[in-house]
Design a protein around this nucleic acid. Structure first.
Lengths: 343, 343
DNA sequence: TAGCACGGGGAGAGCGCTTTCCAATGGCCC
DNA sequence: GGGCCATTGGAAAGCGCTCTCCCCGTGCTA
């Protein structure tokens, strides 16, 4: 192990026979430098194997070339198994992939930050101190103070999914209402007479929108009221909800499930109960996650372009980092229905 | 936006009426400081809202409190869609979740680093410069120079999955051979007479082991030779492989698939072909990822305790960071069979 | 020929923190 | 009561880098 001192600017300068300042200029491509010196410096860099120290650089430039992906879970605790569930959910990976697709070409790195309720102050402090240039926020709990704190602190930040309370902060989101309406329309078009609904947690904005979007569209098709049950976006909760629904309304012939994972659970229960999908009961999911294709029958679902949205979030964040004075912006995506076999 | 200068140690010192050094000692809990001053300092910290600047601290301590999760894909390019595939694969999320379960309580942060072949030198440089205290490496390509480079540079690092070539570096891995043998035994126990095999890419060590493990165990059960096809760990490739297999060996009555995702594809093809699972053909997957439960019928599979392994990797990494002189270590996990409905 | 503008390079002051070294203080023993 | 050690706080030297000044030299104009 060669934990020798690493070459610094100073060393390169000595080898090249110039001053630190000049090496810095050459390395950063700032200002014209005499071509010959320029060459000398690069030779010295190669010779010494110099790599600029990002930390030192960031300390003075106040720029890190890193953005944070903040996963805010102020309501859960460290020992809560929730987190592992969250990471293995396809959701997380899609977000990371989308962010990376923009960040990587831009040479920006991604740091993962998980914060609980106690970590907010610390996080804001670190961010303001230049721990990262900005933050993409995945806000899990329904009423999260974090977006507000970020806005107040003037930290470049973009939310993935709109905040529960209005906050002057940029975000990308999906038109969840429209997506749910798509599902309702499709069910109606198939001739469903008794649609039902499995919603997500009532505090999550996306759940609420999917719920109301579906009900409103169903109403347009003459269903003044639609029976519903609630889950928490996990497979198991979807199964439970489906069982409830079946007990209370054995005659239902279509169900819209607020995400694919729950739909998977619903599908399993339907199968157990001896109902054929889609012939006896049509099922529509939401997200078009990898789970949708894995399902049998393959899930008809509402496509949630999470990768695109995350990529856009990264782009917004990057511009915001460039131009801190810029306007707060939001981009809403239109969902579309992906028709497969379950409905 | 209050982009005022943030309070520094200096400011706290002024407010508390002591020197910077004293504040530093108090904040870091180093050496006994007079209890009264101690209190004064903390008051001043609260009053100013001081948060230590991690960058500045790291610059001098040579410790960052961050480890990197390096995803090495030296064979792919930026425009390769491979990466998005990788992130949405359950694999990635499980690794992150496992690492986080150890890192978070330890107050260590995770930075995501993706490097292509061109980025190696840069990565090593950054790491040595103290960009991160160590690296957990997810090495995708078969013959990756990165592990060797890390070892030579003396950077604390742990591989998740053993390196293709022997390299003096710590790693955690699964006994893939044993896992595959489990599958073969189970198939035999069910009375399969014509087992087949869908393997992963031939260059990936895990694939090779699963392949040879299965064949060896099958041989013990009297199957001197087992027909096989190869995929690349994606669902689609699993479907293709299954089709090939079915064409060449229509009479097969059991198949071991080297990962769950491919098994999903295989299941779909089997269904199309009118074969019942497990009655006509028994299917066993590998990984016990979330996909296994989503499958219909639910997949019998070999459990790959990736979260535990990643957590252990994080632990190894952390000790290695503490004790750079420590021995190179490897931890091998034992797989076990999870019996569900597909076999 | 004197004056001036401008391009290019060096010196040095920090960025915010830790940590070594030293001085001052107090307590204790002889 | 004086000397010595342990304890505690301060001064200051960096960590490696950027960037503002400032100076020097060249080439042009008047």
């Amino acid at each position: 192990m060669q934990s020798q001192r690493l070459p610094t600017l100073e060393d390169v300068a000595r080898v090249a026979g110039v001053s630190r300042a000049t090496v810095s200029r050459v390395v950063n491509g700032i200002r014209n430098v005499d071509p010959q010196l320029h060459q000398q410096v690069w030779n010295a860099v190669d010779q010494t194997g110099y790599v600029p120290n990002r930390l030192a650089r960031s300390l003075v430039t106040r720029r890190t070339g890193t953005v944070a992906l903040v996963v805010s879970d102020s309501e859960t605790h460290d020992d809560d198994p929730f987190m592992s569930r969250f990471f293995s959910d396809p959701y997380f990976g899609r977000v990371v992939g989308g962010l990376m697709s923009v960040l990587r070409p831009a040479g920006v790195q991604l740091a993962l930050q998980m914060v609980g309720a106690d970590g907010h102050r610390r996080l804001i402090g670190d961010l303001r101190n230049g721990q990262a240039d900005g933050a993409a926020v995945l806000s899990l709990p329904a009423h999260d103070p974090l977006p507000g704190l970020l806005a107040t602190a003037g930290i470049p930040a973009v939310l993935i999914g709109r905040p529960a309370e209005p906050v002057p902060i940029s975000y990308v989101d999906l038109d969840n209402e429209a997506g749910a309406a798509l599902a309702a329309d499709h069910l109606a078009a198939r001739g469903c007479r008794r649609p039902a609904l499995i919603s997500g947690p009532a505090e999550v904005p996306a759940s609420v929108d999917r719920d109301s979007g579906f009900r409103r569209a169903a109403a347009r098709h003459g269903h003044a009221w639609v029976p519903g049950a609630t889950g928490n976006f996990t497979r198991e909760s979807g199964a439970t909800a489906m069982r409830e629904l079946l007990t209370a309304h054995p005659g239902l012939d279509g169900v819209f499930v607020a995400n694919d994972l729950m739909a998977l659970g619903a599908l399993a229960v339907l199968r157990e109960s001896g109902r054929a999908v889609p012939d006896d009961v049509a099922v529509i999911g939401f997200d078009d996650s990898s789970a949708a294709l894995a399902a049998a029958p393959a899930l008809t679902t509402v496509r949630h372009p999470l990768e695109d949205m995350s990529a856009e979030a990264a782009r917004l964040l990057l511009t915001q980092v460039e131009t801190p004075a810029g306007r707060v912006r939001s981009v809403i995506y239109e969902p579309k229905l992906v028709e497969r076999q379950s409905a």
